[in-house]
């Protein structure tokens, strides 16, 4: 290569550096599926604060730790206490006990996943890529749903493994409780679908971050509280329909049905725990997982509709 000599006219430093040139790209273009996978992976990483600042990381991992707290306590007690098959918390009650942590996680993450792109107008850059608007919406929902798996199914599996190890005959224990595994996965997956899609739906309408977080918390918890009070205080058969307005009740019903542990109806069911209220409503048990799934489908459809409208 000839020695570079500054020539008149191209003498400026920047000019010289620019002239290092531009290379055309001849390699493969992988298209839509790969682009979506990239968006999904980036969104999951964002959900846990990876590649972002310390604060989002700290928040996500704190909530992740809280979601595991009960499983960890169970493991420690199981290991220390000289009892065989000690159960501090049962798998069918696990999600109900950590539901507020799950709502907080959805509130914190959903706004990051969809709100930021809308606020900073990055959405217009995504839409100029070889993906469709529906793809963007579904990738974001998938990212939140699968991030939630780490807070639901993961601690349950941890607990399952720990219980097996803690039992005097581990293999025997696994054989006896093998039916729990598909139940853990199925109930957890349904929960994640419903929470994730509802969270993205709410966040996709709330422009500001704080507003999105408050809206998610409010919609899950206010519906839960109001429905709980209405059912227990108003002595009317028709109130059983109110339960469908509370996602937390419906998801609990779905989990209890899948674990075959819907409580028996008794005189005080109406005023009891959420599970008792669900049982009191006295719908066929399979209604609850179907309703949970319906929440996910309707919310996803509304999210897709939301993004079709924006350019």
């Amino acid at each position: 290569m000839a020695q570079a000599e500054p020539t008149p006219g191209s003498g400026s430093a920047t000019g010289t550096i620019y002239d290092l040139g531009y290379q055309a790209y001849e390699g493969p273009r992988r298209g839509r599926g790969y682009a979506l996978w990239s968006l999904y992976v980036l969104s999951v990483r964002n959900a846990f604060g990876i590649g972002r600042g310390a604060l989002p990381k700290a928040m996500a991992f704190t909530l992740l730790l809280f979601a595991h707290a009960l499983a960890i306590v169970q493991l420690i007690l199981g290991a220390v206490l000289p009892v065989d098959e000690f159960e501090f918390v049962t798998p069918e009650d696990y999600y109900g006990l950590i539901q507020f942590i799950l709502v907080l996680f959805v509130a914190a993450i959903a706004s990051d996943l969809v709100g930021n792109d809308r606020r900073t107008n990055t959405l217009s850059l995504y839409f100029s890529r070889p993906i469709e608007r529906d793809d963007y919406a579904l990738a974001k929902i998938a990212a939140l749903c699968s991030s939630l798996l780490a807070l639901t199914v993961l601690p349950q599996l941890l607990m399952f493994a720990g219980n097996a190890l803690g039992a005097s005959d581990g293999l025997d224990w696994v054989r006896d409780n093998a039916d729990e595994l598909p139940r853990i996965v199925a109930s957890g997956a349904l929960l994640c679908l419903a929470f994730g899609s509802l969270g993205i739906l709410i966040a996709s309408y709330a422009e500001r971050r704080a507003f999105a977080m408050i809206s998610v918390i409010a919609i899950f918890l206010v519906s839960f509280t109001v429905v709980g009070v209405v059912v227990s205080e108003i002595d009317n058969e028709q109130m059983r329909w109110a339960i469908f307005f509370s996602p937390l009740h419906v998801v609990d019903g779905s989990t209890q049905y899948i674990f075959d542990s819907l409580p028996e109806i008794h005189a005080d069911s109406r005023r009891g725990e959420p599970s008792d209220q669900v049982a009191w409503a006295d719908f066929p048990g399979y209604v609850w997982p179907i309703a949970t799934f319906a929440f996910a489908v309707v919310a996803s459809a509304l999210v897709v509709r939301r993004y079709r409208g924006s350019v």
Partner: peptide, 18 residues
């Protein structure tokens, strides 16, 4: 549209960077 956007670049007028 997908195939168009694969070989076309777009720089919007307004701020759009995170």
């Amino acid at each position: 549209g997908l195939r168009v956007r694969e070989v076309v670049g777009y720089m919007p007028e307004h701020d759009c960077l995170p």
